[in-house]
Write a protein that binds this DNA or RNA. Structure first.
Lengths: 201, 201
DNA sequence: GTCTATACTCTGATAGAC
DNA sequence: GTCTATCAGAGTATAGAC
């Protein structure tokens, strides 16, 4: 997608992507319609297609922008830091992402769930590379006896599964907990405790 | 959905639901088309609609059948059994469900992800009731000092999140692990160890 | 019970006026 | 840059022959 030049282009492009995120994350790629997105964005349908060549292009623009946001917290895990603090920091950042960007989490979940037809290279490339890289660090920490010995990739999967669950299955979590609860606040404390215990040597 | 009378009706209904599961779980409700389902089922499109009044009805039939399968493993957790064994048994059964019925898991995930438009009452009714009931048992075990003190609903969420992740995000898990690995075998061992450690007093 | 043909609606995308 | 009008194709569902 080419970068918009004027301020009004910038503003409309943003409004469209915001609306597209709202609709794609709630209904999936096929379930979303341009009519819905246009409605949410407050623009006409042809006007949407003036800014983006196709529905596909809107979705692609969102995914591209999403992947970095999604991987950044793991990138920040520092080989030179204190192992438990680094991992718990990663967990905390992922909980915050789920709390602050649940739609992004659901967009991502929708895509993987359906076999990642529009993200396959990113998953097999950037994402796998980053996990491999961080697995080396985790393994070294384990060998040094600073955290418990666990399969590193599965440890990372655990962090993804547990933190993203609160965004992706939000409806179910709230239905089960009832209205008095703050799922993300509780998740933050619970997962901190869980991983502290899991990582203890 | 009315129960089929003849053997041929039984057989075709089954073939349609099997095909519908294949397609709905892979593409979501809206993304799935009757053409695809008819193709997979080996029947004509109008013939599908002879057995089910609408696309919606096929989806509903799958969801209704699914919920019991999905909740049974939790139902089996026995208040009179040994706490750690009961919980680990539940985890093991959920891993087996993910391994043996990944399409059902993805169908369910798709539905919750989109706010459960066709399952809301079941989530707020049967599912919540069962979790509440089992939470009482878990809490008693905690008060008796037989397992670690944890928020019971979040403990159950952990089991759901971790086990279903291997079915729902299968594509990502396999991409990261590489072709040499058996995700579900590893998940079984890893999660057994994880919950053993988490529940230890 | 199953098929062919088709009605009708929705949806993504384009044309062209302003 | 934005809108009205509209097209072409896909998609759900029905009619009616056999």
């Amino acid at each position: 997608m080419s970068r918009p030049r004027t301020r009004i282009q910038q503003k409309n492009s943003e409004a469209i992507l915001e609306a597209a995120l709202e609709v794609f994350s709630a209904y999936g790629f096929r379930g979303a319609t341009l009519d819905q997105i246009a409605e949410v964005a407050g623009l006409s349908k042809p006007n949407l297609l003036y800014y983006f060549p196709s529905k596909e292009a809107m979705h692609q623009a969102l995914l591209t922008r999403l992947l970095d946001t999604w991987l950044d917290p793991l990138r920040e895990m520092d080989a030179e830091g204190e192992p438990v603090a680094e991992i718990l920091g990663y967990v905390r950042r992922k909980v915050e992402l789920s709390r602050d960007f649940p739609r992004e989490s659901r967009l991502f979940a929708n895509e993987i769930l359906q076999g990642a037809p529009r993200m396959r290279e990113a998953i097999e490339g950037d994402l796998k590379r980053l996990v491999d890289e961080k697995s080396v660090i985790l393994t070294r920490w384990m060998e040094e006896g600073r955290i418990a010995r666990l399969p590193p990739a599965h440890l990372i999967f655990s962090i993804w599964a547990l933190t993203q669950h609160y965004a992706d299955f939000d409806m179910q979590v709230r239905a089960v907990l009832g209205p008095e609860h703050d799922p993300f606040a509780e998740a933050g404390d619970y997962l901190d405790m869980l991983f502290r215990k899991l990582l203890a040597v």
